[in-house]
Design a protein around this nucleic acid. Sequence first.
DNA 1: CAAACTCCCTGTTAGC
DNA 2: TGCTAACAGGGAGTTT
Length: 294
Amino acid sequence: MLFGQDSWKSLISQPILNNMPELPEVQSSVDYLAPRLKGRSITECSILWERTLATHSQSDFKKLILNHTIYQVTRRGKFIVIWLKSGKHKSAILIHLRMSGTVEVISSKISRDPYDRIILSLNNNKELRFNDVRKFGKIYLCDDPTIILNHLGIEPLAPDFSNSKLLGMLKNKAGAIKPLLLNQRFIAGIGNIYADESLWLARIHPLRTAKSLKEDEISALHSAIVKILNEAIELKGTDNGDEVVSGGLYQPKVYGRTNSACLRCGDKLSRIVVAQRGTHFCKTCQKPPRKSKN
DNA sequence: CAAACTCCCTGTTAGC
DNA sequence: TGCTAACAGGGAGTTT
């Protein structure tokens, strides 16, 4: 499918991992969208894959958003929240990118991509295009988005996510730490990559039970989560700012680096499956729980 | 209550 | 070389 002048790109910069949107990627998308959408109204809507719509039929969705004005774009967990207003009526479009979703705001003259799923035309001859190869992404429309968003856990970058808060959250939790980090009702926004990265930085084995963690380990985990998410946001935030949201520059330390050298101790990194997710860690830096394999 | 599996999808890759 | 089957992954839903 690639040919001509573009073919060299795929050979040289073959992505090791496709950019799976977690909190930092979603935040970057929100930062990208906000200035491009604020104050715009929706003039038209193309539904190219209806099952992307999670809450409404094609016709209802169109009816309910046309001529509405976007007044704000925010993030909650891995959701992009696009706030709408029409007269006194307020509502919100929630976008969940899941595995492969991306958003861009682009001139309506630019030809569409085969993987574009939903397109909202704006009143400035541009379009918001939701593109999603694997079709896992979802778009919700709600009068009250808090009904969905309130099910989510704490925001890891909010001020109330303190060290002592996490300490209390982990106390008495019998399960393993990694599945807990992935649970969106526990902490909102961490996915497989940043869970592995945080545990590695905090030197905690992914199979350790939450309640077995010592205070200093929880403290290390807390600062690892905050540090890595912030670092990743910073590296995503430096896109060229024009049209397409480009992939970020954050380089995973363990995720996707199975059998490569640990950047801390040089030992070979391991990969196991935890909660049906590929899990990457250093068996030397991250000591396994008492009675277990490595 | 929690752990484990199934489903939704398709590009990529391992295995024959 | 070319094909097929397995795999990856977020999260809702279902079963153990």
